[in-house]
């Protein structure tokens, strides 16, 4: 499958990674190479093979719906790059 510059720019938008035009072209070449290489997986017969979504070693478990590590608001906020009181700040989203 070919991966063109337009697709790379779209992925960058979806992933919210700002890229310059020049970077889009560099990544396009490298990503095309990698995708070309992984295309060999098409040789494998995966008929009736279930996808592996984990190693299946851990028992799924439930826990009580309780706060066990609470009252640490200031710790949670301690790494905020910008805040006002107990709030994170972002640019205006709703007009």
């Amino acid at each position: 499958m070919s991966l063109d510059a337009k697709t790379v720019a779209k992925m960058a938008r979806l992933a919210r990674v700002g890229l310059s035009e020049e970077q889009v072209h560099t990544y396009q070449k490298e990503m095309q190479g990698i995708i070309g290489w992984v295309d060999q997986l098409n040789e494998v017969d995966v008929t009736d093979v279930p996808p592996m979504i984990g190693t299946g070693l851990a028992q799924p478990r439930l826990r009580d719906d309780q706060v066990t590590d609470g009252n640490c608001r200031d710790k949670v906020l301690s790494n905020a790059p910008d805040r006002e009181g107990p709030f994170y700040t972002v640019p205006k989203v709703v007009e």
């Binding site: 499958m1 991966l3 697709t7 790379v8 992925m11 960058a12 979806l14 992933a15 990674v17 890229l19 990544y27 490298e30 990503m31 990698i34 995708i35 992984v38 997986l41 098409n42 494998v44 995966v46 093979v49 279930p50 996808p51 592996m52 979504i53």
Partner: peptide, 30 residues
């Protein structure tokens, strides 16, 4: 890191998910 994020986004994006991500998970079973 950017290259991997972009490729990861690509193999999970609609239209490519089955061809790449799902197939890779099946190969992982094998």
């Amino acid at each position: 890191v950017k290259r991997r994020i972009l490729l990861g986004t690509y193999v999970l994006s609609s239209g490519y998910y089955d061809a790449y991500y799902l197939r890779a998970q099946k190969v992982r079973t094998l």
